[in-house]
């Protein structure tokens, strides 16, 4: 992101590093009150966050025994046995982790494409009522967090989602279960079925089919986790100066060309922001099975050491995922500097 505000900088200091450490010039002295503003944050990092990070790693290589008299806990070093258990003994962890990461990897591009597409639709200047629609699209951010999604308010009994899930869940299963569906949804069923037939007749590669089917069956999930992303894209679209488009019209560009040559590059930096936000946002979504799994292992079974090992593995996976996504997306980002 570009620096809009000129920040006062002190010149590079020469000479002995240690002697300069406690010497301040005018600019540095002026910036001193900054410490006061961020003091709570510093305290939080020093006393809670950083120790917790190190403890998490420490706990993961030990077993925690809570003393019965309530005076604390003892750590017994166990080496890497917790990690060994996670990968080679526990039958379900690798499965659950893989499933959650797969969900994340599938959802990420779908959420990005969906929110981008929706923001372009909602950005149409001549669409009356777009503010109302914008508000509805943002509603899930406020209400479908936490308990609401944990308790299945967003899934399960919604028939459209069920039907979509049944039809699109597995392309290898022949679609014959339509008779058991509720009659009112027969038309949706029919449309979905014919859509499926059309897709199958296109003879796409099977991984692509799988991807399309999977993303349709998780329609609700996708829609409900793209509220913020839509708004971010919308704001980015509106921040493109109209003079650029006017110039393009004078030069004779078509709408199609304008989209690829102006709109997309101008908001490409937001694609990066949104993809990282999508990943970060997924940490708090109880729909990813791994969260409940780690919680059960550590708090349900009071095996804190093992739980720490699992959460460290999860953390590493997420960091690697963010690194890969950033690496891929930032190649295509255009900065208007």
């Amino acid at each position: 992101m570009a620096e809009h505000v000129p920040v006062l900088k002190s010149p590079k200091k020469k000479g002995n590093f240690l002697r300069n450490l406690f010497r301040m010039d005018l600019v540095e002295r002026r910036n001193l009150p900054g410490y006061l503003f961020v003091l709570p944050i510093i305290i939080g990092f020093v006393l809670i966050f950083l120790p917790a990070m190190f403890q998490s790693i420490h706990f993961s290589v030990s077993e925690i025994q809570i003393r019965t008299d309530g005076t604390g806990y003892d750590l017994i070093s166990k080496g890497l046995s917790n990690y060994h258990k996670a990968f080679f003994v526990d039958a379900s962890f690798v499965l659950v982790l893989g499933e959650s990461l797969r969900d994340m990897v599938i959802n990420l591009p779908v959420i990005l494409i969906f929110s981008f597409f929706m923001s372009i639709l909602l950005n149409r200047k001549k669409l009356p009522g777009r503010t109302v629609l914008r508000v509805i699209f943002f509603l899930p951010v406020v209400i479908y967090s936490g308990i609401a999604s944990a308790a299945g308010l967003t899934s399960g009994t919604g028939e459209t989602a069920e039907i979509a899930a049944q039809i699109f869940s597995d392309p290898t299963i022949a679609s014959g279960g339509s008779s058991s569906m509720q009659s009112g949804f027969a038309s949706i069923m029919g449309m979905a079925l014919s859509f499926r037939v059309v897709l199958e007749s296109m003879q796409l590669p099977s991984w692509l089919m799988q991807f399309i089917f999977m993303s349709i069956s998780r329609l609700e999930w996708i829609i409900q986790s793209s509220g913020v992303q839509i708004l971010v894209f919308l704001a980015a679209l509106q921040s493109i100066p109209t003079s650029v488009f006017e110039a393009a019209v004078v030069e004779g560009l078509t709408g199609w060309e304008m989209f690829w040559k102006i709109t997309l590059p101008m908001i490409s930096s937001m694609i990066l922001v949104n993809s990282i936000y999508t990943i970060v946002d997924s940490f708090t979504n109880p729909r990813y099975a791994i969260h409940e799994f780690i919680r059960n292992q550590s708090f349900g079974k009071a095996d804190y050491g093992y739980g720490s090992a699992l959460s460290v593995i999860y953390f590493i996976c997420v960091i690697v995922l963010i690194g890969i996504v950033t690496g891929i997306v930032s190649r295509y980002v255009f900065y208007n500097d």
Binding site: P51, S56, I64, T71, R295, G307, S311, F315, I319, I322
Partner: peptide
């Protein structure tokens, strides 16, 4: 970093800290 670290990762140390 606090955003990028999943809250699950630091939950156990924080829980034990407040427990004791």
């Amino acid at each position: 970093l606090t955003l990028v670290v999943p809250p699950q990762t630091i939950l156990i140390p924080i829980f034990l800290r407040f427990r004791f």
